[in-house]
Design a protein around this nucleic acid. Sequence first.
DNA 1: CGCGTATGATATATTGATACATCAAGTACG
DNA 2: CGTACTTGATGTATCAATATATCATACGCG
Lengths: 337, 337
Amino acid sequence: MKNKRPTLDDVAKRAGVSKSAAAAIFVQKQSTVRVSPETRSRILLAAQEMNYRPNAVATSLRRQSTNTIGYYTGYVTVDLRVPFHNHLLNGIRQACDEQKRHLLLQGTFPDTPIEQIYNDLTDGKIDGLILHSHAGHPILDYLRQDRLPVISIAEKLAGFSAVTIDDAGGSNSIAEHLHALGHRHILYRAPGDVHTTSQRYPQFMTMASELGMEVVRDSHLGSFGEVSAMEEELLRSGGRSHPTAIVCWNDLFAHQFMRHCKKNGIKIPDDLAVTGFDGYAPHPFFEAAPAYELTTIRVPWVEIGRIAAQLLLKQIGGAEIPLETLVPVEFVCGTTS
Amino acid sequence: MKNKRPTLDDVAKRAGVSKSAAAAIFVQKQSTVRVSPETRSRILLAAQEMNYRPNAVATSLRRQSTNTIGYYTGYVTVDLRVPFHNHLLNGIRQACDEQKRHLLLQGTFPDTPIEQIYNDLTDGKIDGLILHSHAGHPILDYLRQDRLPVISIAEKLAGFSAVTIDDAGGSNSIAEHLHALGHRHILYRAPGDVHTTSQRYPQFMTMASELGMEVVRDSHLGSFGEVSAMEEELLRSGGRSHPTAIVCWNDLFAHQFMRHCKKNGIKIPDDLAVTGFDGYAPHPFFEAAPAYELTTIRVPWVEIGRIAAQLLLKQIGGAEIPLETLVPVEFVCGTTS
DNA sequence: CGCGTATGATATATTGATACATCAAGTACG
DNA sequence: CGTACTTGATGTATCAATATATCATACGCG
């Protein structure tokens, strides 16, 4: 029969020493308690014979630290299959692995009471929290009153450090690229009340104006895959009129729109140019004969996850970290423009 | 300044009651201690004023249960962007959310000492563990000696319950489908020493023989994207000879191979039929104008993750769960056959 | 020989919540 | 009116480690 798990007391008893002596062997940082080599090996032998392993929960309670960070996936998107989640998580996990920390996936259904979310995030299970895509979420006000170290990804949130993306630079690149190709009339497709839009659209507008391009704004939100009225019109016109290019706020919208183009016989980029933003490096799995290679801004999501986790761990360690860490992006010229 | 976090003692003191009374209000299951409505509200008021939240780590220690399950991602594939990971995780998270449990992502670099992995998995941080793709991993022997509840996904592992996939049924479907289309010479492409192969290949062979088809086996492993000698030959021949169909052990191999077909001008399915296995329901993100719709066996990975987590939680709760839970698959006829 | 110090331990308080035993006061009832 | 039982609490041990104080010896040295 599988026995009860041995504790440090059991080990000490078997080795014929005090608990303090036994503890000195297993404590994470070096102990002030000294143990002779012979005693040490006696304790280690006893521990091995009993298959002793320290209890992480007890250690966490006493040390007031769990060596675990959380990634909160609630609110906007809970589906872990969404690329930004698994790309970020992959990077976060790399950092955790390197520093021997653990990663807790925390997320809640949209209708979970805010108090419960707050409780869940700040009940001591984690030493720090990574947030992404939570601008405007009521949890932020709660977290600001708490001592839990928090880092934000892709958004500046008052009171927290952030790893941000060079949205402005990316937007400039797209505007310049389209201008160079001769496009003068652009449809800018991005939902209105979304944080990312506010980071990308104004800069695009500024640059577009400088270059003398006309931009029409389509801020329909809708659900993924839904076609807006302006898009509908564009599809009906066959794309062979103004605007000559559609700038999408992210790759997802671009891909979705291109599906409709295909159905409607619109040729890309001949009839219409399409650009995205995000550039999720597709996993090899998805590289199978893509119909289009999207022109986009490649955002190094995996790297961003990793940087965020590293900064958070520094902060947990007591270090000061910069309020903003800007990560550069890369213009990728595909076949859709 | 942000103060020290209040404890139950602090709340009790402020409300002028004993710790036991205060505890009775916050304890998870109902307490044997009775509290009058007036006292109750006095305690609740005090707690609210102090912003008291119970410490989860202390609770875990006392209750000997963390309400957390682990998902171990080490060994074969650590990259969380691989579809089976994020599909499974999504299902697991659904189940955890429903039952208010937490999910710890545990994984280690390939060169982590086994003792350390064992320690990490069994040090009390989690109440149970989900394993996928770990057949033959040395950690299994360690875990078998432990009390930690474990459930395996997609593989029967001695000593643990498993959620399994109807690999045999899926293999039959593919054999019958190809036979019905007139194919008589098949190349079966699957690495030799992989668990999944042993589940899928024998049944395919049995059914193929019954139907009078000839099957050549290509068991080259190689790394993802690498072309085997047999594939090379097939590509050179332009596919316009025997075999007339290639059965891949999973969608990944199928997609990879099709990339090479495209490069070599081989038309699918006219020159060569291709089938896969897994049928990761692609996220809407990836639905953009796929060049091929792969003929495959759709395995409900999200659902499988969810079932596995639910069973594990039952087992943790003390219930007996079946040693094997077989999940049916679905034949999907695409345009590649 | 007595004082200071290094070595190798032990004893005890602490971390924050929970389970259970105990206890005082009030009520029901024969 | 005494026993039995209910209500509404309190006190204490426990979960498994860690931090710190304390305590014996032994040794160096003037």
